[in-house]
């Protein structure tokens, strides 16, 4: 067994007075896909958004506990959120390419704004990342078209490519396929199993088949609490908790 890459201990999150996450502890191993499932409003987004501290964008949100990454508690003030987010990237529920930018610019913008000026290097990265995101063949002839001119599924893969371009070892995905049709979803699922070779993926999904298909580990949340965490094969075939069983068999939520 390797060491966890991210280790969450007794994490609590509040929105002002509202206690949204109530003491969650989970270890994430490198090069695994980890699903978070649970009914709407149970705190899945809140939880992953704290892992790269994007939760700080919500006024009144605060987190307590520890999230260890590379030997540091990322919640502590010594850790600069800008550095952290280069390590822990994020793909959002709604595909959100930058509207004023072309497909090419969208892909490399992170790298470019981090100071990479060399055009051929940027082109190379764009190609690599678009290929990793399984989008290259569809867009290679129209890299200068606006990113928003693509279909929803293509836009989401563009957003994945954009995240990959800054090469974060960990990728957070908050329901990345919930706005997509089954074919686009299938493409993104394939892509994730491919990504696992190089990245650690934490994915929120409300689609349990999806979790069962792609995730090595699955966590089940209800009302801000972790009900069960373990190998997906165990969670979906042989859950320890009655609530988990009720949820995955559709008798709940």
């Amino acid at each position: 067994m390797s060491q966890p890459i991210i280790s969450v201990k007794d994490l609590h999150i509040w929105y002002n007075d509202f206690h949204a996450i109530k003491g969650i502890s989970i270890d994430y191993l490198p090069n695994t896909i980890n699903a978070i499932i649970g009914p709407s409003g149970c705190g899945k987004s809140t939880f992953v958004r704290t892992l790269n501290r994007i939760h700080e964008e919500v006024p009144g949100a605060r987190a307590q506990g520890s999230i260890m990454y590379m030997g540091k508690n990322i919640l502590s003030s010594e850790v600069d959120p800008v550095d952290l987010r280069r390590q822990i990237g994020m793909v959002f529920q709604k595909p959100n390419p930058f509207p004023s930018m072309s497909i090419f610019e969208n892909t490399v913008i992170g790298l470019k704004l981090q100071g990479e000026k060399n055009k051929s290097k940027l082109m190379e990265v764009a190609e690599t990342c678009l290929k990793k995101a399984a989008l290259w063949d569809e867009v290679k002839d129209k890299l200068n078209k606006p990113g928003t001119s693509l279909s929803g599924g293509q836009q989401q893969r563009l957003c994945i490519a954009r995240s990959l371009a800054v090469n974060p070892p960990v990728l957070l995905m908050d329901e990345p396929t919930s706005a997509l049709d089954p074919i686009a979803t299938g493409k993104i699922e394939e892509l994730m199993t491919e990504l696992k070779k190089e990245y650690t993926v934490i994915i929120v999904t409300h689609n349990m088949q999806q979790a069962a298909r792609i995730a090595d580990y699955t966590s089940f949340f209800i009302l801000g609490e972790l009900i069960e965490h373990g190998l997906s094969s165990d969670i979906f075939t042989n859950p320890k908790q009655k609530t988990t069983e009720d949820y995955i068999t559709g008798r709940f939520g």
Binding site: R86, N96, M101
Partner: peptide, 25 residues
């Protein structure tokens, strides 16, 4: 907001998100 968050999530400092993505866009 989600556009700004997308910029921040790339590890860009806020001023770069504001200038290069919000204003220039």
């Amino acid at each position: 907001q989600h556009i700004k968050e997308a910029g921040l999530a790339l590890g860009l400092p806020r001023w770069k998100v504001t200038y290069f993505i919000v204003v220039k866009g």
